[in-house]
Amino acid sequence: MGTSTGRLAGRTALVTGGSRGIGRGIAERLGRDGALVAVHYGRNAAAAEEVVKTIEHAGGRAFAVGAELGVPGDAEALWAAFDAGLAGQRAAGEGAEGRGPAGQGTAGSLDILVNNAGIGQYGRIHEVAEADFDKVFAVNARAPFFVVRHGLERLRDGGRIVNVSSGVTRVAFPTAIAYAMTKGALNTLTLTLAEELGPRGITVNAVLPGVVATDVNPWLDDPRARARVAAYSAFDRVGEASDVADVVAFLASDDARWVTGQNLDASGGSNLGV
């Protein structure tokens, strides 16, 4: 396998929830840009390996990282799997090249962290059970917090953190109140981390997608549902994973060096008139 080239060549990225949906689009795009991509999955190892193969077939480099989020010890388990996977890449001669201390223990082993993994939770306030509320917060808000917390030593100065939030934080969606609250928390985490990590040259931004056509949203196969969602956007179409992945790739690159603490809407101008 040849050496990857591109604007992210020599850098290492971790994409949580990278085995499907928006996360898969992000992982594949970062791979095309030359990064060595750690494709995280919760339970479906086969899906993650498929993404790894897709990246490799395109000339990139990737490996799968398995760890269930939203459970005690999840962040530690994720980083242990990342460290082991990266060590395997080094042993195979596939580690990131030319970026300072990469390959020397866990410190300074990561350039780009994309907190994408999340679950939905739908229902109005009187319909949300406590257990469901706790679960969506554990996966969507608590896990990113501690993934960053335990990853700070691994993240290099000048690195990038991109949090995948949601357009539901801009408008009121009573039927997704608990989910929207988790993404609001992620936006606050983004702003605060940008201030905290600025002295290290690390940028922290959030991307806010609207509804995206992926296998996570099979109901979009209904033409009427698709038309209704398309009407939300100023462009009168449903978003694709690549629409969001391209924005993340920009934020992960040197071109975004002067952008931090931002919640960047990537919903195709959804609900602008609201």
Rank of each mutant, 00 (worst) to 15 (best):
D254C: 05
Y232F: 09
V211T: 15
L189W: 05
T214H: 04
D236P: 02
S267K: 07
D157C: 03
R170G: 06
M181T: 14
S242E: 05
H150I: 15
R156D: 11
S267V: 06
R224T: 15
A176T: 13
D265I: 09
L251P: 01
H150G: 13
D215W: 01
A241V: 04
L197Y: 01
G167N: 12
P199N: 09
L155E: 10
N163K: 08
D255L: 13
V168N: 04
G158I: 12
R154T: 14
A213N: 10
P199D: 05
G269P: 00
R200D: 10
A213T: 08
R156I: 14
R156Q: 15
L197T: 12
L251I: 11
S253E: 05
A227I: 14
A194V: 06
V164R: 03
N163S: 13
P218T: 07
R149H: 11
S253C: 07
V238C: 07
N205L: 07
N217E: 03
Y232R: 14
A266Q: 08
P218G: 04
W258E: 12
L152G: 07
F250H: 07
R237E: 08
H150P: 11
G159N: 02
T175M: 11
L189S: 13
V259A: 04
T203H: 02
V216D: 05
A194Y: 03
D157R: 08
L208Q: 07
L251E: 05
A225E: 14
D246P: 00
G167T: 11
P218I: 06
Q262W: 03
N187D: 15
D265G: 09
E196L: 04
N205F: 01
D265R: 06
A249R: 09
D215G: 10
N187Y: 10
E153L: 13
V229P: 01
D236V: 14
D243M: 09
V216Y: 00
S166Q: 15
R160F: 01
D215E: 14
A252E: 06
L193A: 10
A213L: 06
N163E: 06
A256W: 02
L186E: 08
